[in-house]
Amino acid sequence: MRVERKEEKILTIDGLVSGYGKMEILHGISLSVRRGEIVGLIGPNGAGKSTVLKAAAGLLKVTSGKVVFKGEDVTGTPPYRIVEKGMAFNPQGRVVFPDMTVQEHLDMGAWTIKDRQEKEKSLQRIDQLFPWLMEKKKRKASQMSGGEQQMLSLARAMMIQPKLLLLDEPSLGLSPKWVKTVFEKVVEIKESGIPCLIVEQKAAMVLEYSDYGYVLEMGNNRFEGKGRDLLTNPDVRRLYLGG
């Protein structure tokens, strides 16, 4: 079922062992994200999907294994340095600063950008991707719907003009209509040249959009393959997609 993937590797995770404190969640995960790909990461609850993203983004301690980003070993680098290198992370659940405005979210997204012109460029990009957002610059996040918040979070993550986008359950708590909108936006982002690694509970949904997919189970790799192949794989279907 392994397929040859020829594009350049943007992110390589190799034998990753990590977890919370003394509790080990990942027992040696390996995966890669290549140029031009959406990679879906699925698996049952507690498989360690989110943990992979957090460890890659520097939010969790890596016990062993390696995280290589754009050819550079970034294992154990603090999150604020990883962001500077161009890895954007859209976390799960509470994705906004409730009391801050849209404009302030974009400012925070651009925290690591020192150059005024670069920031201006990012804002123009956001304006193309999320035109409606720029009309609500003064709106506070807490006054927005869950879907709008998710989009705001995406926009915030895009402010660094990332080389890779990590998304942790972007569909969480959203209506089907918003889920579709969010995924279409992610495809648009990918097509603009930014590969995405997406963790999702809605496995069938994410595989639909994914170029490649990984299935985790109990902190280990279980299956991998092209998104469509995984969707039709009888084992994956039976175990993770509900028949």
Binding site: P79, N90, M100, E104, M108, S153, R156
Partner: peptide, 20 residues
């Protein structure tokens, strides 16, 4: 000041914005 508010409202998102 904005960084401080961001940290207090959602420290995980603040971290991934690159805020120390």
């Amino acid at each position: 000041g904005k960084g401080i508010r961001a940290t207090s409202q959602n420290s995980e998102v603040a971290l991934v914005c690159g805020i120390n």
